[in-house]
Design a protein around this nucleic acid. Structure first.
Lengths: 225, 225
DNA sequence: CCCTGTCTTAAACATATGTTTGAAACAAGT
DNA sequence: ACTTGTTTCAAACATATGTTTAAGACAGGG
């Protein structure tokens, strides 16, 4: 009984950035996989530990428990996604606001649809949005609200004129909705159109389509309202 | 030991339609509530039975088990939603195809956003789409595919000309995505815009917006590609 | 070589939860 | 009243699963 059982703070956290981090890192990766596949509830710490080739007690040693492991995984996945597809690729760069919109959509799609190595980010977000776990508030503050606000100001620019808040909001939702559908409804899409593959080229075409639809909806025309 | 333990078929099923159906009906309703609130996994048969004021063993008596109860609830909820908002309100009625599109969007939104008494339908569908449970295939065949196909033919009419399948598909997804966002992202929306209430009037305005955006995106214009 | 702090491990623990059981209550027909 | 088929019930069962425990392995300094 050299300790109360749980270290107040994950011990390895201090050494962050060093190479020999094995167990904790493996746990994060394995947990990301399993949480993404099964969701928070259906994921078992035993399977996570099995995949990480680590003892079951480790998750309580390095993290406080399953819940804290999950929030750490969310944070981890968010950083990975941003690192793989940095903001600089598209955000408020030079060029027309119209092309900025396309860039935004493209970047967003890439991040949420990526199926590469750590593909968890999109899946974790999709689940968290539809079925919050208590970590949602943190996710909103860290990831969703900034994204939402930057898109909102973009829309405000494009619509121009005297912007009514409700209309701006609806346009923002239309854009986000079109994008997120490809993530949320993936199981359904796969069954309705088994042939379509969402590789880089298809994502590119999809981004073009969404940006075009959104733009034509926002450009002053007699149709709307 | 008058029986093998489980009746081959729920006994009351034969009597369907008669008034005295109490326990089984109560179970379906309670199960709908709980499944909608917590999702399949987190819902416990004990809580369902508590709300239905029924013994725990009942769910295995009237249904084969939790799983079959769930699929029966899905079917039940689907019928309720169709009954409350019948197709005839909007589908392929007279009037321009443009107004048909508005009707479609409106009806779809009403069905998935309804928060009235048995509000489960939308919630159950949202969860099933994002995180299938094994009942998804049945749901697709019974509810999703017909809806998808009717929307597809509507889009095909509106776009006109020589329709490329991929483009039709993207327009269909854009419309569905815009609608489903309001269901899927509801927890997030509630936090980003705590003031907005999705009553009948707001749904009406939202439907108008979505139909307008979709239409302007489909109408032949130089923008799209 | 021992001491000390860090990590790892197998086993146990506690609890939640779907399911089964065997008997009793009930209803209906005869 | 007896019989028979159906429904309800409390208790038990079996299992999955998050967590804790207590002992050992390991490394670095003294």
């Amino acid at each position: 009984m050299f300790k109360t059982g749980i270290p107040d703070i994950a011990p390895a956290k201090a050494k962050r950035g060093l190479l020999p981090e094995k167990a904790r890192e493996r746990l994060l990766n394995a947990a990301g996989e399993v949480f993404a596949e099964r969701g928070y509830r259906r994921a078992t710490v035993r399977e996570i530990c099995r995949r990480a080739r680590v003892n079951v007690a480790s998750v309580n040693y390095y993290f406080k428990g399953k819940e804290d492991l999950y929030t750490d995984v969310l944070e981890f996945a968010y950083r990975q996604a941003r690192q793989k597809y940095p903001d600089s690729d598209a955000a408020g760069r030079g060029g027309s606001t119209e092309s900025s919109l396309f860039g935004f959509v493209r970047l967003f799609l890439l991040r949420i649809l990526d199926e590469g190595r750590p593909a968890w980010f999109g899946k974790l977000m999709a689940r968290e949005i539809v079925e919050p776990t208590g970590a949602l508030d943190k996710v909103i503050d860290r990831a969703i609200r900034p994204l939402h606000e930057s898109l909102e100001s973009l829309v405000r620019e494009i619509v121009g004129g005297r912007p009514r808040d409700a209309e701006i909001r609806r346009h923002v939702f239309s854009i986000l909705g079109q994008c997120l559908f490809y993530r949320h409804a993936r199981p359904v899409i796969a069954r309705l159109h088994p042939d379509v593959r969402f590789d880089a080229a298809e994502i590119e075409r999809t981004a073009r389509h969404i940006a075009a639809v959104a733009l034509s909806g926002m450009k002053p025309r007699g149709t709307a309202r």
